[in-house]
């Protein structure tokens, strides 16, 4: 029972962590809570259904499942990155020098717009993810684990490791950290701030697309409103880990997933969604800077 809940928790936790990374990276650089980020995740789930549907109708899936899945992932990530890039350019960049509340309101507006846009184009009813992936179940000593759960945990860990390497080792990754610490100084050194901000949105949206795809496969159903609750939970994960901290978002995602599934298993599964908000309220009361966040004075 306990181990079973741990496995379930790690599965949803990996997804929360992937989405939370987008929140925390954008916050780290712009000090903006990008409330439209959950919608990008939702769009990723829809794109997965659309592309996989196209490939299945065209016969590609029957010809080669791995190729079909690979193309679905690549195209969904590309499209979602394009969405994230465009949202930043249209809704946030013009407000770069406005008071902090303005881009926040703009983000809420984008969120409402994207939800309704998907509802109008895709319909208000649930969409079913094509049943193309053979799901095998592994059982040992009373624990059941599906191949999908393993894929989700492994893929999220791999992506996080990749992101960590990117941020720590590459020229662009180091520039992202520099911009997060001091934008004026970064531009005095020749770093193109606009480009770094765009890269941040592109990466965050790509990760959200993968999360959306995996969730669509895991639950099999997608709805235009799934971005809202997932977005708020991932935001909670980011705050739990310390908003602005990349490792914090990773840890926060897994911890939140574990709290949720352990709570559902041992207390009551009716309140599953409420645990995230209880956690959010507790962190804000006890340690607002989160697990890995440091209270920093404001940058000059």
């Amino acid at each position: 029972m306990f181990l079973q809940q741990i496995i379930n928790g790690l599965t949803v936790g990996g997804v929360y962590a992937l989405i939370a990374l987008g929140y925390t990276m954008v916050y780290g650089i712009l000090e903006l809570i990008n409330f439209a980020h959950g919608e990008i995740y939702m769009i990723g789930a829809y794109l997965g259904i659309i592309f996989l549907g196209i490939f299945t109708t065209a016969g590609l899936t029957q010809y080669s499942l791995p190729l079909s899945l690979f193309l679905t992932v690549v195209l969904s990530v590309l499209f979602c990155s394009a969405y994230g890039f465009t949202v930043e350019k249209l809704a946030y960049k013009p407000l770069r020098n406005a008071p902090r509340l303005n881009p926040l309101i703009s983000a809420i507006g984008v969120s409402i717009f994207l939800q309704n846009y998907v509802m109008l184009t895709q319909g208000a009813t649930d969409k079913v993810f094509p049943h193309v992936l053979p799901v095998t179940t592994i059982e040992f000593s009373g624990i059941t684990m599906t191949s999908l759960q393993i894929i989700i945990i492994v893929v999220s860990l791999l992506l996080m490791a990749g992101l960590h390497l990117f941020i720590m080792k590459t020229r662009t990754g180091k520039a992202m950290r520099a911009v997060a610490q001091d934008k004026v100084m970064a531009s005095l050194l020749g770093i193109d701030i606009d480009r770094i901000i765009s890269v941040t949105f592109i990466i965050g949206s790509g990760l959200a697309a993968v999360a959306g795809l995996m969730v669509a496969m895991y639950y099999g159903l997608v709805n235009y409103s799934i971005g809202y609750i997932a977005g708020i939970k991932a935001f909670t994960a980011a705050v739990l880990g310390g908003i602005g901290s990349v490792p914090g978002a990773m840890i926060g995602g897994f911890v939140l997933g574990l709290i949720e599934s352990l709570g559902a298993g041992y207390l009551s599964s009716e309140y599953k969604d409420a645990y995230a908000f209880i956690v959010l309220i507790l962190i804000l009361m006890v340690k607002p800077t989160g697990l890995l966040g440091k209270s920093e004075g404001h940058k000059p």
Binding site: K174, R177, A178, M185, P300
Partner: peptide
């Protein structure tokens, strides 16, 4: 002015 070293780099 103030050097503006990136403290966490």
């Amino acid at each position: 002015e103030g050097r503006r070293i990136f403290p966490k780099l």
